Amino acid sequence: MAGYTREVSKRVFAQEFRNSDLSFRDGDDIYSPQYLLTPTGAKVNRLFLVGTLLETENIGMENEYWRGRVADPTGSFLIYAGQYQPDAAHILAECETPAFVSVVGKPSTFTTPDGDVLTSIRPESINIVDEQTRDLWILDAALHTIKRIRSLDSNDEYISRAKEHYNTDAKYYSNMVLEALKILKT
Rank of each mutant, 00 (worst) to 15 (best):
M1D: 06
M1P: 08
G3D: 04
G3R: 09
T5K: 15
R6L: 12
V8M: 14
V8I: 12
S9K: 13
K10V: 00
K10T: 09
V12S: 04
A14D: 01
Q15T: 09
E16P: 05
F17A: 00
R18L: 11
R18I: 00
R18P: 03
S20L: 03
D21C: 02
D21N: 13
S23P: 04
S23M: 12
P33G: 08
P33R: 13
Y35P: 00
Y35R: 00
T40F: 01
G41M: 05
G41V: 00
N45H: 10
L49G: 00
L49A: 03
G51E: 07
E55D: 06
T56S: 08
T56R: 03
N58I: 05
N58Q: 01
G60V: 03
M61C: 00
E62D: 08
N63L: 13
E64Y: 14
G68C: 07
A71R: 11
Y80L: 15
Y80G: 09
Y84M: 09
Q85Y: 07
P86C: 04
A88G: 05
I91S: 06
L92C: 01
A93V: 12
E96W: 04
T97R: 07
T97F: 07
P98T: 08
V101R: 13
V101L: 11
V101A: 08
V103F: 06
V103K: 08
V104Y: 03
V104D: 05
G105T: 11
K106C: 01
P107G: 01
P107D: 02
T109M: 00
F110R: 11
T112H: 10
G115E: 06
D116L: 13
T119R: 15
S120N: 13
P123A: 03
V129S: 06
V129T: 14
V129M: 01
D130P: 15
E131Y: 04
T133G: 07
R134C: 11
R134A: 08
D135I: 13
D140K: 10
D140P: 08
A141Q: 07
L143E: 12
H144M: 11
H144A: 15
T145D: 03
I146D: 09
I149P: 08
S151R: 12
L152S: 06
L152C: 14
D153F: 02
N155Y: 11
D156N: 05
I159L: 02
S160C: 10
E164M: 01
H165M: 00
H165I: 09
N167G: 12
D169W: 06
K171A: 12
Y173K: 01
Y173M: 06
Y173T: 05
M176W: 10
V177L: 09
L178M: 07
K182G: 02
I183A: 04
T186F: 00
T186L: 10
T186Y: 12
